[in-house]
């Protein structure tokens, strides 16, 4: 019961946050320079008929909150209107790009975790040994390497010189998507993997000195069990938080990598739309990324409940 209540409270908080976020997103229209109808006209010729249509369509003659209400009721049905620039459905523009970006973000996270967990564990256990030094140095390099430089390097080595991977676009179908997104995912994962390795190494150092590690060895438990149930489970909790941040960050923040690999993703769309003052698209993108961050954080909190019994069971139960 207590956990359901906790989830209920978190969901309620999430709804409030989303409402606030949507209000801010909608407010973008009013806050932008120029009159709303001017903005929504975009590049179209300014005829009185068209302006009247826009005023009617966006309820511009009604009070602000009513405008917001109309926009919101459409937005929850994933109807964000049409782009002021291309007259395309906003949902259509975003939908395709969201697919690429989400796949890239998840792929990048998986690659980062696959590299960071063994490397971080190993570095922590072999503290000060050559293996640790190599991993720590590599992580430092990965953190300091600019994303575009790494992208170009990967493209040149694996795309051009070795010709293992395509150098442009996301391809069609899931299998081809994954093939096309491998290099971008690696480029995206480099920074976050480095961050995770450093974090995991630090928590492993802390956990290896705990009494329960010695006690586990004293009872003759197998190394496999000690590494997973004892070392990994006790040191992986900070990784959850980082994973959430990384995932949310890659949705809107992978612009450089999208550009380098010629991917039509959300990040590049956001930049273009902001430059074009294409307010309907910007509103939708801001709401989408904001909502993703909130949902991912909720999932991270739920994962904590699943993984850490100390969160699940309050101390007072003793």
């Amino acid at each position: 019961m207590s956990i359901l209540a906790f989830i209920g409270r978190r969901l309620a908080a999430m709804v409030v946050l989303l409402a606030l976020l949507s209000l801010l997103c909608f407010g973008l229209l009013g806050l932008s320079p120029g009159s709303p109808e001017q903005l929504l006209l975009g590049t179209r010729p300014s005829t009185p008929e068209l302006r009247a249509t826009i005023r009617a369509e966006f309820h511009l003659d009604e009070p602000f909150l009513m405008q917001y209400w109309h926009w919101l009721t459409d937005a929850v049905r994933f109807d964000f209107g049409v782009s002021a620039h291309t007259q395309q459905e906003v949902t259509a523009i975003i939908g395709e790009r969201f697919h690429v970006t989400a796949l890239l973000a998840v792929y990048g996270l998986v690659v980062a975790l696959l590299v960071a967990i063994p490397a971080g564990l190993y570095a922590g256990v072999k503290q000060g040994k050559p293996g640790d030094q190599v991993i720590t140095f590599g992580a430092l390099l990965a953190i300091s390497a600019p994303a575009f430089a790494l992208s170009v390097l990967l493209l040149y080595v694996f795309g051009v010189a070795l010709n293992w991977f395509p150098v442009f676009g996301a391809g069609e179908g899931l299998a081809e998507n994954i093939y096309h997104l491998t290099l971008p995912a690696i480029a995206l994962a480099a920074g976050s993997a480095a961050l995770m390795i450093r974090q995991l190494r630090a928590s492993v150092l802390d956990v290896t000195n705990q009494d329960f590690m010695t006690f586990a060895r004293a009872r003759g438990l197998s190394p496999a069990r000690i590494w997973t149930v004892y070392l990994l489970r006790n040191s992986c909790l900070p990784m959850l938080t980082i994973s959430g941040l990384v995932l949310a960050g890659s949705l809107a923040g992978a612009v450089i990598i999208e550009q380098s690999f010629g991917l039509a993703g959300l990040g590049s769309q956001l930049i273009t739309s902001v430059q074009q003052l294409d307010i309907p698209v910007v509103q939708a993108l801001a709401l989408l990324t904001g909502a993703t961050v909130i949902i991912v954080n909720l999932l991270v909190d739920l994962a904590y409940i699943v993984i850490d019994p100390r969160v699940r069971h309050p101390r007072s139960a003793a």
Partner: peptide
């Protein structure tokens, strides 16, 4: 068997 009962057992 070690000294501190609270740190000797895996909290997970």
């Amino acid at each position: 068997l070690m000294q501190d009962p609270f740190t000797m057992l895996n909290p997970m």
